[in-house]
Amino acid sequence: MTASQGIKYKAEPADQILVTPLDSLTLVYQRRSGITHIVAEPAPEILAAMGTDAMTADEVAQRLAAQFDFDGTQAADIIAARLNELADLGLVERCHA
């Protein structure tokens, strides 16, 4: 396990975002920033799965795997990359110990 995989992330609380699926893309309006993000899957699914918990990419992958019936270990890298993008947007935050 690399250092980056050990980082925990926290999602923007569900009552602080408005999620509107349109077609293949989903709109995420963030109340705090007033910014509208246009995202593709699995970003909305990641946000929904995280809830209020601080989680590592592996943990998010496991939780999604249980929900959507895929192999979580293979998806962990993809989830980690998406989490980093979401963190850059400010939709999830990297937790500092």
Binding site: L22, D23, S24, L25, L27, I38
Partner: peptide, 8 residues
Amino acid sequence: VGPSEVFM
């Protein structure tokens, strides 16, 4: 034109 393109 699909909704997400219209939105953008």
